[in-house]
Nucleic acid binder design. Sequence first.
DNA 1: CCGTCATTTCAGTAATTTCTGAAATGCATG
DNA 2: CATGCATTTCAGAAATTACTGAAATGACGG
Lengths: 183, 183
Amino acid sequence: MTLTPLQQDFILHFGEMGNRWGINRTVGQIYALLFLSEAPLNAEDITTALSISRSNTSMGLKELQSWNLVRLRHVQGDRRDYFTTPDDLWEIVRTLIAERRKREIDPTLTKLRELEMQGPQGDPYAEARIAELRELIEMMTQFHDEMNRLETERLVQLMTMGRKLGGLLDKAPNLNPFRRKKA
Amino acid sequence: MTLTPLQQDFILHFGEMGNRWGINRTVGQIYALLFLSEAPLNAEDITTALSISRSNTSMGLKELQSWNLVRLRHVQGDRRDYFTTPDDLWEIVRTLIAERRKREIDPTLTKLRELEMQGPQGDPYAEARIAELRELIEMMTQFHDEMNRLETERLVQLMTMGRKLGGLLDKAPNLNPFRRKKA
DNA sequence: CCGTCATTTCAGTAATTTCTGAAATGCATG
DNA sequence: CATGCATTTCAGAAATTACTGAAATGACGG
């Protein structure tokens, strides 16, 4: 496995960004390599392409699988595991959002509910703050569930509406208690 | 500064989650403490409440300021700096999204554009993949810009529409080339 | 079952990040 | 312009995370 300069550049960037994305450099690089490769790659391919140890590749792939970011494939007459990323970028985005929610949001929602279950503790401000935060997170996760239900085509329609979105909301029936707080 | 059990529990949770959110434990704890405190706190308050070093507090506050997550306040006749979090949770969410975009998305968008500027490199698959990724990120960042322009009231209206959202899109004028790909 | 090859695990090491105490800097007041 | 506080900086220590090579496990074909 030898890389083109374009691949090199892209892979190094993903490696650097890995930290910020909550994965390590190697995992970012493995993902970038798979993302740019049309054909599925096996662990040996990845190991040589990135000049890392075989065990590091194994751990990186395990991590990517735990994120549901790679797909396992098999090639006829070859017992090694091959990996790819989905062709559909929207599928990748959906996965990323779902997994980040699972890791970054859901545990906190659980904790907030747990704290509220314990009832008043004589700290009204903190209790109100926690309740408000829980409500907001619930609203956002419910919205995410709804967005997830939409077909990609609809999602793209919504996202490309631009300035028209405000106008469309005007036409919507008055569905909820938050609408028109003041006016 | 002595903490209630409720505060303790919440603060420890935010500390643990800090890693996953791309900040460290201390920064998460400082934020949690400020979030639950009605009155602004100074660095000394934070240092004693969390049993950390004064310098660690200083660095943590600097980090939170770089994220625009805390507000600096001053108290009459006291030359120390006091800190709070915004009362409005939606403002906090907007800030979080904006800052994460700045750190996690924008640099990659820049890099992708840079790679495309270099023109064809004889690797059509990788080039197509990069172009597709750039387009998707551009669509999402533009959508984010639009959402950001909406007043909170409108945002809440949109988010609480639930199942009605699909129906509303039906009523929307056909604005874009992605709509109705097949049918 | 045996041998071969692929993958995973794991203990030790390397690299990185976080935290501390001490020193330096900044800044308002008398 | 010295003094007293508040804050920041920074070098080293402590803690955590990432990576490697070697050994263990698994899985298939003969």
